[in-house]
Design a protein around this nucleic acid. Structure first.
Lengths: 378, 378
DNA sequence: CTGAAAGCGCTAACAC
DNA sequence: GTGTTAGCGCTTTCAG
């Protein structure tokens, strides 16, 4: 009752044939095989309950049907959905997925990549985006095929060094932010805050750019006092996003001329903003409009439901997974590809026109607003 | 620049020694090794940037430093946190984690287990709990060591068949529900609804039991019309939890004598209830108290913050991971162990005493309540 | 204390 | 069409 000790030889001898013939069948080289031989083998495999050992196979071929999956943290709902989608997509292609929560730490990522390599894993889905992607290049040199997300938006035309060592599939981060800001501007907002963790990743920088561009396009001067970027803080705020969002919102609201609307760098930050707004006894969207990015499950569930810019996770992974696999299997040897997918604004209940006396905005110290909650008659 | 082709022989020859000596060093059999030999080898490994191939090693030893992780879906925030914790804990022990989203489907789980086996993976963290755990027994027979969660609460003393094929670490699900109900009863509620997906898993059944017991202990008659169990629905509602919670709450609220408080089978359902309450223009907790189970990240973030019963994820995994590993490595050959950890009620803002005219409760068709939101002066 | 040799289960030439 | 054979990179007796 110990391990499955039945090998290809057992099958072969039961089927009165040779291991190589069995191997041929196993690998679909069944073209010129006598049907009866084939049947005998299949019968034998059946009866022995034979399961080929991937281990032995991969020692031989150097191929293993596993992909590495590196995300900051699956505890973050966005990355959880990402991982789920990655696993599902990979499975459709006959691959499994080895999870790695590297917390955006370059060293952790490298250690992780090394262990993948020694496990014979040669394909990596890299869902993270520290500014420097050099280490990905290093991985590539060691034989790792990687696909990143969020790398290289539309805007900066100059390629990052090492860029051609890996493929990427990303949303247009600049446009994401622009979409959000345009929506807010259309609603009449002119003091639009930006709430973010450290602007260290390229996706965040790109979003920042989009924010600025959209403001400029609308003729609204850029006001640095409306930017809140977490600092004195060691990390990227993937898990603590909500807490950072809360703190940031409080800080922004305490300013002289607080924003009437906020673009949060992602939905977690947006929910932190919700919490802050609750503490301040303000109301969303009447006194503060909030837009998130990602469209995680809770966006639709929150009260009010969050207006956000959706990342097309499914499409992203559907593009990425076959690509790594093709690379790993050597079917795709072309130059690095950088694909960019569109994002979509989802307008829900957290955005509305600013109050007329917008210039006064919200304030911590002001008189507590007492007003009835809007009730809709059904 | 292709693959890391440096093998143990290269190291050996550079170090002017034999592969087996290198292997000895690699495996810590360094007791009776001449220090200088050792140094030569270490130097050689350094210079060659040698990385032992796990693949070759495991073909030989049958051991791979990977654990399978089977959850319904990492897209569900609870399981995301679970997976994150599992990965982190496993890594502390030198193991990696292969993700499998089996959606609680027994067949999918078996397929997944098979592929694990053929990958040489012999340890499985099984975070799911369909009622029938027989298939786990089957896996055990094939050599898979598994640790389950949520299996076998304190209550039903009769062991499930096949139970001694695998270990388990779980929270006391009966107590979880009891804690929640007692809290509600203490607040003065007598009509307490239960909102759940199909009561097919043992953890859910146990929770149901705890709910009933607590009611009985409080002298409150059990009223089946207060139970809403999703049906006509194919699955366990892991991802759709919120939607189910919403529908269920609507249904419960439409009853003759609607509940004044709700126990949701998990936090996702609770948030679904939030959404329903919003649609009904009611207020939490004044008009409806809600208690969840799990304490996912959003529990603290929601408005109002959700009162819930926390599952001690970290402790759960800290107990489970070393156990599977010990099993896999053959260090632990004793009989199956079933560990039960305590849960903790976290009281937040979603529970309060029922309104005095509790018997009337909430109603869809009743007049819309217009009342000011409570505002706290700071 | 170190080395030689025999595989682990499978694949891929290359014979037959 | 099918069988033989030689390894993949490492571990592990068992000699030296």
């Amino acid at each position: 009752m110990e391990r499955t000790a039945v090998t290809i030889q057992h099958v072969a001898s039961l089927a009165k044939t040779s291991p190589s013939t069995v191997s041929n069948l196993l690998n679909g080289r069944t073209d010129r095989m006598k049907p009866e031989t084939r049947e005998r083998i299949e019968l034998a495999m059946e009866r022995l309950n034979y399961r080929p050992s991937q281990i032995a196979r991969q020692l031989k071929t150097g191929q293993t049907p596993i992909l590495g999956l590196m995300v900051p943290s699956v505890a973050n709902p966005f990355w959880g959905e990402f991982a789920q989608q990655a696993e599902a997509t990979a499975r459709e292609h006959g691959y499994q997925v080895l999870l790695g929560n590297a917390g955006r730490d370059v060293e952790a990522e490298e250690r992780y990549a090394e262990s993948l390599l020694s496990l014979g894993i040669r394909g990596l889905i890299h869902g993270s985006s520290p500014l420097s992607l050099e280490h990905l290049g290093r991985m590539a040199v060691q034989g790792m095929r990687v696909v990143t997300f969020d790398h290289r938006g539309a805007s900066p035309p100059s390629p990052t060094p090492g860029e051609d060592e890996y493929d990427s599939v990303s949303v247009d981060n600049t446009t994401i932010a622009r979409l959000a800001v345009e929506h807010l501007v259309a609603l009449g907002h002119r003091r639009i805050g930006l709430l973010s963790g450290p602007l260290k990743t390229s996706s965040r920088q790109l979003r920042f750019l989009g924010y600025r561009d959209a403001l400029e396009a609308a003729g609204i001067p850029f006001d640095p006092s409306l930017i809140w970027e977490a600092h004195g803080f060691d990390g990227f705020g993937d898990v603590e996003g909500a807490e950072l969002g809360r703190i940031g919102t409080l800080a922004l609201a305490a300013g002289d001329r607080p924003p009437t609307a906020l673009l949060a760098i992602n939905d977690m930050f947006a929910f932190g903003a919700y919490a802050a707004v609750r503490e301040l006894n303000l109301r969303i969207p009447d006194e503060l409009s909030i837009v998130g990015i990602d469209d995680i499950v809770f966006a639709a569930l929150a009260s009010p439901p969050l207006t956000t810019v959706r990342q097309p996770l499914q499409a992203l992974l559907a593009a990425a997974i076959p690509r790594v696999i093709a690379r790993v299997e050597g079917r795709d040897k072309g130059p690095a590809q950088h694909q960019i997918l569109p994002a979509e604004l989802v307008v829900r209940g957290s955005t509305a026109p600013p109050r007329v006396d917008a210039s006064q905005g919200s304030s911590v110290s002001g008189p507590t607003v007492r007003r009835c909650r809007r009730t809709t008659t059904r």
